[in-house]
Amino acid sequence: MTYRVRIENADGEVVTIEISADELREKGLTLEELLPPNARIVEVEEVEP
């Protein structure tokens, strides 16, 4: 499974990243732990691999 994640950074700019569930598991991280300081998740969407 892959996630498309929209993130708002500290400057108010919204960027989109895609990350797979396998990648998260391998790194032992959650989506929140990948965020840079002062950023927030705006939207998470599951996409087909």
Rank of each mutant, 00 (worst) to 15 (best):
M1N: 09
M1S: 08
T2I: 15
Y3N: 03
Y3M: 08
Y3G: 02
R4N: 04
R4K: 09
R4D: 02
R4C: 04
V5Y: 03
V5F: 03
I7H: 02
I7M: 07
I7K: 00
I7V: 09
E8D: 02
E8M: 14
E8S: 06
N9R: 13
N9Y: 15
N9A: 08
A10E: 13
A10Q: 10
D11F: 12
D11G: 06
G12A: 02
G12T: 01
E13H: 10
E13Q: 13
E13F: 11
V14L: 13
V14Y: 13
V14K: 05
V15E: 09
V15C: 14
V15Y: 15
V15S: 11
I17L: 10
I17R: 02
E18H: 11
I19C: 03
I19D: 00
S20G: 07
S20P: 06
S20I: 03
S20V: 03
S20Q: 07
S20L: 06
S20D: 07
A21M: 12
D22M: 11
D22P: 02
E23T: 09
E23K: 06
E23C: 14
R25S: 07
R25Q: 08
R25C: 09
R25V: 08
R25A: 09
E26H: 11
E26C: 13
E26P: 02
E26A: 13
E26R: 12
K27E: 03
K27T: 11
K27W: 09
G28N: 09
G28P: 01
G28I: 02
L29M: 12
T30K: 10
T30S: 09
T30R: 10
L31Q: 00
L31P: 01
L31I: 11
E32H: 10
E32G: 08
E32N: 09
E32K: 10
E33W: 05
E33S: 11
E33N: 08
L35T: 03
L35G: 01
P36F: 04
P36K: 03
P36S: 05
P36H: 04
P37L: 09
P37H: 08
N38I: 02
N38F: 12
N38D: 11
N38M: 08
A39P: 02
A39E: 02
R40F: 08
I41Q: 01
I41Y: 03
I41V: 08
I41D: 01
I41E: 01
V42H: 03
E43S: 15
V44H: 02
E45R: 10
E45M: 13
V47M: 11
V47W: 11
E48P: 14
P49K: 12
P49I: 14
